[in-house]
Design a protein around this nucleic acid. Structure first.
Length: 345
DNA sequence: AATATCCGCAACCGCTCCGAC
DNA sequence: CGTCGGAGCGGTTGCGGATAT
């Protein structure tokens, strides 16, 4: 049994707001201030859902809002923060006076994401596409937990670069595994890309991607600061040579090492270390919020460090824990104010 | 000039969080 | 401690203008 709707949706107006409706909201807020939005439509004489009124006010009518375009400084800040904390738009918006989370989110989805993709940077991990691919390629040495293992990299990456979603060719070229390609495309074995993610679990997939991003060198912000000079990357396109930034670091070795045993969490469906599972069992509950958001948050990256530094870091970060600690301190150094109490929401 | 397609923005939806009771 | 309901958040949708054909 779900919650009753906040209003009778069949009897309230929806869609674009008229100037008259805007004027009523404004007049109401001037006289009564904000708060208890469910009463606002009634008191203001509007045939709208209270929630809709609140959105209209917070996203458009608030007098402190800017309605002009984003500046390059704002743009850079958004990318930096997205690289650090992921798509937590409200937090990002708080750092941009006069901008709403909706503004930031729309700007990211329509402009910045495409811009990064054009530059050969994966907008999810904020790493060069070539590096993401090589990271995933290294993951392909995962223990063979399922026979149906396919390549399924994040959608942005795949779509932006028109790479076919190919299966990993099973040993002996037995083509019994399911083929997943972009719609209507025949898998191109010539362009086979050696990464694989376990089928039928987006959680697993995203978690692996997240771990791949975070456990190797995290470099979003150093990338971001080089927005104006994308040519500074050695590999700008997926067609570029795919070479692991650190050949001495072997993902498959790492994942199979005694110190790090991976298991599928039966409740959340994500891959976790045994230690993580154990902790989750103890904490019992808040792991979803912590896990999901921290994944993007602590999977974040250093700011101001050079790409070379990050790559070297990756070579050194043989220990997963070391990697996490390194990143944590880097993030704290880069965004100290984001880690105060108000950030922890 | 008409039509199709693309793109950006505003708004909605469903969910979680959190405070009041 | 559990329930309820308002507020807030992130993802998604759909409209309307801009651009291409």
């Amino acid at each position: 049994m779900g919650r009753p709707p906040c209003c009778d949706k069949s009897n309230v107006k929806r869609g674009l707001w008229t100037p008259e409706e805007d004027a009523k909201i404004l007049a109401y807020v001037v006289n009564h201030g904000t708060g208890n939005w469910t009463l606002v439509p009634k008191k203001a004489g509007l045939n709208r859902c209270g929630k809709s009124c609140r959105l209209r006010w917070t996203n458009y009518l608030r007098p402190d809002l800017k309605h002009d375009g984003f500046t390059p400084q704002e743009e850079e800040l958004i990318i930096n923060l997205h690289g650090a904390i992921g798509s937590r738009w409200s937090i990002i918006a708080k750092r941009l006076p006069g901008r709403t989370d909706n503004d930031v989110k729309n700007y990211w989805n329509t402009k910045l994401r495409k811009k990064l993709m054009k530059m050969g940077i994966d907008p999810v991990t904020h790493k060069p596409v070539s590096q993401v691919l090589s990271d995933l390629g290294s993951i392909s040495g995962l223990p063979n937990t399922t026979t149906n293992q396919i390549a399924f990299i994040n959608k942005d990456l795949m779509m932006s670069n028109m790479l076919p979603i190919t299966k990993t060719e099973p040993s002996g070229s037995n083509k019994s595994t399911v083929e997943h390609t972009q719609e209507g495309q025949v898998p191109s074995w010539e362009h086979h890309i050696p990464y694989q993610v376990i089928i039928n679990s987006e959680n697993i997939q995203s978690h692996v991607l997240s771990e791949a991003a975070s456990s190797t060198s995290s470099s979003s912000s150093s990338n971001i600061t080089q927005l104006g000079s994308p040519q500074s990357y050695s590999c700008q396109t997926p067609q570029a040579q795919i070479a692991p930034p650190c050949s001495s670091f072997d993902w498959s070795e790492f994942l199979q090492s005694d110190s790090f045993n991976w298991s599928l969490n039966p409740s959340s469906g994500i891959i976790q270390s045994e230690a993580e599972l154990s902790n989750n069992a103890k904490s019992n509950g808040n792991d979803m919020q912590g896990g999901a958001s921290e994944g993007s948050g602590s999977g974040a990256v250093a700011c101001g460090a050079s790409m070379e530094y990050q790559i070297n870091k990756q070579c050194e970060a043989h220990s997963f824990v070391d990697g996490i600690l390194d990143r944590d301190s880097e993030i704290r150094a880069a965004f100290p104010e984001l880690l105060d109490a108000s950030f922890d929401c």
